[in-house]
């Protein structure tokens, strides 16, 4: 499958869901959002966050994924994958990138989404 064609306006195909290990992540270099971490949880949901921890910029893609959360590899902040928010008592938010999965293909928002 060619991973470079555009499917729907505003969405870019990134990879197949199966290219990401369950409870893992892949890094995507995007012109729009910079380095993005795409996570695949055990229940096969995909999430995308900017690959920078709100604490000191740690690469979230390299953390341990548990449930719908990831623990940052640098100082162990726990970031909610859905909201990007750090779990209390830490405060901060990683930027979310809209992502969806269609026919096993991961699509990342390329348009002017929030």
């Amino acid at each position: 499958m060619d991973g470079s064609i555009m499917r729907t306006a505003g969405w870019t195909e990134v990879c197949r869901l199966d290219d990401i290990p369950r409870q893992g992540a892949r890094v995507v270099a995007t012109p729009k959002h910079g380095q993005v971490a795409i996570f695949r949880t055990l229940d096969d949901t995909a999430f995308a966050l900017e690959d920078r921890c709100p604490h000191k910029g740690g690469p979230l893609s390299q953390g341990i994924v548990h449930g719908h959360a990831v623990t940052c590899p640098l100082h162990s902040w726990v970031i909610d994958l859905g909201s990007g928010e750090a779990a209390a008592p830490d405060k901060g938010c990683a930027r979310r990138i809209p992502v969806r999965v269609e026919d096993g293909i991961v699509l990342l928002a390329s348009g002017a989404q929030p």
Binding site: G24, V65, H66, G67, T71
Partner: peptide, 30 residues
């Protein structure tokens, strides 16, 4: 918590590795 957390998973991965050498499939995700 059904998937554990970043602190118990590495510990369990090690305990299993130690208990069942050659048999246990190391879990990189943990």
């Amino acid at each position: 918590r059904p998937e554990g957390c970043a602190s118990c998973r590495p510990a369990l991965n090690y305990y299993l590795l130690c208990a069942w050498p050659g048999e246990y499939q190391d879990d990189a995700r943990s």
